[in-house]
């Protein structure tokens, strides 16, 4: 009995190794599996296109009717015959509130991140990390409730003091005598909600600063603040800017917390942060939605479209910045 080469070959043949990666799967179950996963993985694409398609098709007649003044005009009326849907005060107010929030939140968040990474003893920095996590986990509805009932009286008081002593600066001017429901308060509420985002991102990039560079700076006789200013901050700049943009994206889209603490007025308030006049697209949608006419609903969908495009752009820029700064560090 001789073993022919052909039987040997068949006996010793083993299943071809299947590599992960771009190679096509062979069995039916694999095909079904990959197909299902690919379709599900593209769900985010479907949702994003769906948002664009549904919001724009519904609001297109209104936007065409209003023309460019949909985003540049300041007149909103749902009375039949004299309908007019223009969102400029809300659009401007959204950006204005977000900028106030950033002015408050950015320094606080960066100092918190520096405190966690460089200054605080281990125990305190661990506590602080938990505090930031908890703050991030508090629902916006609760922040709104607290902001309306607890924070507003306190902040209005501070607004009055600011006006009393710094009222000669146009930004702090207020000739209405009312200090509640102002952009100043809305800015603080938004700041509370974005501090966790900016702090977490800044902390992560700051923690990646090479210890050798810090040591070198200290070893040359530099102070800790000098090392942070000359080494850590330049090193983490990209990541911090990315975190700030992520916070900005969140601040632009926040609805309910702002709804309770801001007076929505269809009249642009360009710079006075202490008067009770402001605007916010998301809050306006909630405020108008309940008793809206069919045309008005479509206009609100258009306002939502503007908000969506705005936050999408901000978030994409933010993610690109964060990604680039981490890639630079890895290479």
């Amino acid at each position: 009995m001789t073993v022919t080469s052909s039987t040997l070959e068949t006996k010793s043949s083993y299943p071809e190794p299947r590599y992960f990666g771009r190679e096509k799967s062979r069995t039916t179950s694999d095909k079904i599996f990959s197909g299902t996963v690919i379709v599900s993985a593209l769900s985010s694409l479907f949702v994003l296109t769906g948002i664009l398609v549904y919001l724009s098709t519904n609001s297109l007649p209104i936007i065409i009717d209003q023309g460019i003044s949909f985003i540049t005009g300041s007149n909103w009326s749902n009375i039949e015959g004299e309908e007019s849907f223009q969102i400029f005060p809300m659009l401007y107010g959204t950006l204005f509130n977000a900028i106030i929030a950033l002015v408050i939140a950015v320094p606080i968040s960066v100092f918190l991140a520096l405190f966690i990474v460089f200054l605080a003893p281990k125990v305190i920095s661990r506590v602080l990390v938990i505090v930031i996590d908890v703050l991030a986990a508090i629902p916006s509805g609760i922040i709104g409730l607290w902001g309306f009932l607890v924070f507003t009286p306190v902040a209005a008081n501070w607004g009055e003091l600011l006006n009393k002593y710094l009222g000669f600066i146009p930004v702090f001017a207020n000739d209405q005598g009312q200090y509640a429901r102002s952009p100043f308060i809305a800015g603080w509420i938004l700041a509370i909600m974005i501090i966790p985002i900016i702090t977490v991102v800044s902390r992560e990039v700051l923690a990646q600063t090479p210890q050798e560079l810090i040591d070198a700076s200290r070893g040359l006789g530099g102070s800790l603040s000098g090392a942070i200013r000359m080494v850590a901050l330049p090193y983490a700049r990209g990541g911090i800017i990315g975190g700030v943009m992520l916070g900005l994206g969140r601040a632009l889209g926040e609805t309910i917390a702002v709804f309770f603490v801001l007076n929505l007025i269809f009249d642009v308030n360009f710079y006075q942060i202490l008067i009770p006049e402001g605007g916010n697209i998301a809050s306006m949608i909630v405020a108008k939605f309940g008793e809206a006419t069919p045309n008005e609903i479509n206009a609100l969908l258009g306002a939502g479209l503007v908000l969506f495009v705005m936050t999408l752009i901000v978030n994409l820029i933010a993610n690109a910045i964060v990604k680039r700064s981490t890639r630079e560090r890895l290479s």
Binding site: I38, G253, N315
Partner: peptide, 29 residues
């Protein structure tokens, strides 16, 4: 992570873009 298909980068990009959708816009949609 597992299939690592051609569109892996694209899917991650889309998920990131989706994480920025404001809650009110999700409701409107």
């Amino acid at each position: 992570t597992d299939i690592r298909g051609r569109a892996a980068g694209f899917v991650r990009f889309m998920v990131q873009a989706m994480s920025g959708v404001p809650s009110i816009v999700a409701g409107l949609f």
